[in-house]
């Protein structure tokens, strides 16, 4: 579904990603593990077209998407859930969803009503301004908002970061249920706990490069290696 080949991304003169290659097969979930600032978010932003790569290629559903503007990438069926719960604070919950509603090729037929079924807490606050939601509710909203674009693949940037344990559990269950429905995912995360639950395939990043790649089955065996890249 997604094939990234030797991506090099820069912020101005700063070289941030070094030959990042990764593949996500249809219907599977891949996880990028890594500490803060190793390039996980940049990788997702690069795929989305927000920080285009200077070298390398990105294929989505077999078509080149590197160099396309973000709105075209989104319309091809790639949903993006940014870190830090970036809702439209001045819009109501409902308007946050309606703004994002569109039919992408090969989507799953999402509507606001279906999104409310996955996240019942949002239904209750549908007319409230999104800026007044709690952190967990805002995270639910950014995921629901991405679903409204009817994506065939979702990019999730640290979806459970900074949330209460109860909320983390709720979100993990929601994400797993989306995966069971057949949604392909690429998830950035900081700890193995979440990756072990969701990921079929695992990448570990350090200093802007992929330093480990493995299957879920390998995780236990390679735990020490993976951990060594996650500690400072």
């Amino acid at each position: 579904m997604l094939e990234c080949d030797r991506l090099h991304t820069y912020y101005g003169a700063a070289h941030v990603l070094f030959a990042v290659s990764l593949n996500v097969a249809p219907g599977t979930a891949a996880c990028i593990l890594g500490r803060n600032g190793v390039g996980k978010s940049t990788t997702l932003r690069t795929v989305m077209g927000l920080t285009p790569p200077r070298e390398g290629s990105i294929l989505f559903k077999g078509r080149r998407i590197d160099g396309l503007p973000a709105y075209k990438v989104a319309r091809m069926g790639l949903g993006y859930v940014p870190e830090d719960r970036r809702v439209f604070a001045e819009l109501s919950v409902e308007d946050n969803l309606l703004v994002a509603e569109r039919q992408a090729e090969g989507g799953f037929g999402w509507t606001a009503e279906r999104a409310f079924e996955v996240f019942p807490a949002l239904q209750e606050f549908r007319t409230r301004l999104a800026g007044f939601l709690s952190g967990g509710q805002q995270q639910m909203l950014t995921i629901a908002r991405a679903l409204m674009g009817n994506p065939s693949m979702l990019l999730l940037d640290e979806p459970t970061e900074g949330l209460s344990p109860v909320m983390v559990k709720t979100l993990e269950e929601a994400i797993l249920s989306l995966k069971r429905e057949g949604l392909t995912m690429l998830v950035a995360a900081q700890d193995m706990h979440f990756a072990a639950k969701v990921a079929d395939h695992l990448y570990v990043m350090n200093r802007g490069a992929i330093v480990y790649e493995g299957q879920r089955a390998d995780m236990e065996r390679d735990a020490a290696v993976i951990q060594s890249h996650l500690v400072v």
């Binding site: 439209f88 308007d95 946050n96 703004v99 994002a100 992408a104």
Partner: peptide, 24 residues
């Protein structure tokens, strides 16, 4: 309208609107 909400979304953050598929 949804068009109005989309304009408000762009006002708040054009990049965020773009990655949701809006041609700003």
């Amino acid at each position: 309208s949804t068009f109005g909400a989309a304009l408000a979304a762009i006002r708040e953050n054009p990049q965020r609107a773009a990655y949701l598929g809006l041609n700003v």
